[in-house]
Design a protein around this nucleic acid. Sequence first.
DNA 1: ACGTATTAATTAAACGTTTGTTTAATTCAA
DNA 2: TTGAATTAAACAAACGTTTAATTAATACGT
Lengths: 221, 221
Amino acid sequence: MFNFAPEINGKCIMEWSEKQLQILNVAEELFASKGFEGTSVRDIAQKAEVNVAMISYYFGSKEKLLQSLILNRTEQTGLILEGLSHDVKLSPWEKIDKVIDYYVDKILNERNFHAIMNRQISLVQDKKLTEILINVKKRNSSMISEIIHEGQRKKIFRHVNVALTIGTVMGTISQVSMSKPFYCSLLKLDAGDDISYYKKIRPQLKSHLKSLLRAHLSINN
Amino acid sequence: MFNFAPEINGKCIMEWSEKQLQILNVAEELFASKGFEGTSVRDIAQKAEVNVAMISYYFGSKEKLLQSLILNRTEQTGLILEGLSHDVKLSPWEKIDKVIDYYVDKILNERNFHAIMNRQISLVQDKKLTEILINVKKRNSSMISEIIHEGQRKKIFRHVNVALTIGTVMGTISQVSMSKPFYCSLLKLDAGDDISYYKKIRPQLKSHLKSLLRAHLSINN
DNA sequence: ACGTATTAATTAAACGTTTGTTTAATTCAA
DNA sequence: TTGAATTAAACAAACGTTTAATTAATACGT
């Protein structure tokens, strides 16, 4: 058997072969559209054009395939914007705008992966997986948290509930991303056309969240 | 076989026997914690203390059991607050507060059911089920929509994006309800203790959403 | 550079469970 | 006595995983 240990702490960055990445890509797509339990390893193998046994061979099991997928999709995150919260040239307001642009683009671009995460975190299934997901969410939300706290320290932002403000940002984006058929119906868009939906909703979502947070965090009145 | 047609349009309100309700209750709990595909009909039968065959006998199939569950949990909604949006004694601001109290309580109380809905609507599984879920969401969100439009007509509210404002309200509540392990970790609460988590988060969530919408919809500044 | 030893990659087939559903017999109630 | 409720058993299909055999690739001593 193929021998490797996907460490939780992200210490060991795996090297993935082309075949493995192929499997991960197909798994992501199918898990997102049919659910983890609703997707069989044979579905994945067939669409990835590999033998069924290769999945056990490479990843050990279906559960570990999911863990590997999540680790793979999160191991290189946070590098682009890690400097943002410590950037002295930007005001907290500018940082808020930048961080909204970043998260809207990130979640909408990686919407399949986020659909899997959002579904899986509310399932009491694998304790190890839950721990991984919590850490990913913490890492993702820490930047917003830092920016808000900075603004509050500088008396530019109100003293809002930071955890729930993060929940509002994440929740709004997730809602738009995961309840697509509902919003397509609301906005009278074709539910089948993914591209035009996200093309239309993306800038709306950004400006909505920016004006929402501007009003929410403003100290005046 | 047991013969009945769970109509989409909610026209026919089913009469459910005690055994059937028992099955529906257990199914709701298991679907919420283990997912629809992750729950077997034998799991349900065992916990509901009925024979496996009774599920097919009463509901036809596992899929139709899920449809029946959703129809059962939504067929009596909207009665309590249907008068709210047409109440002339209340200002739009008071209506917003009332509607937030209502939805936070509703979603947190029926969190198992909403977890199932939120998970299932993003799956491309059963077209009939997707249609049912869209209609439920439309029905649920129409009240907020009406109130906001009324406030805008009366020049009390800003001209915000109504659909996305609804998404913010629903998304924030869903996020708190579905990412419980994450918020428990953030707020340093015991993830196992459901009761104390929701007891603590419920009033925080209500006041957060109220002040958020007050700032968001206010016309001043 | 070549043949060989060693390891990795890949395969088809089979494994034992578990899945949702049905059957046919029986019990229960009207 | 008729029809609904309930049961244990059986059903075929699908599930995740393993096996054992084969092919491809790599390393190494000469």
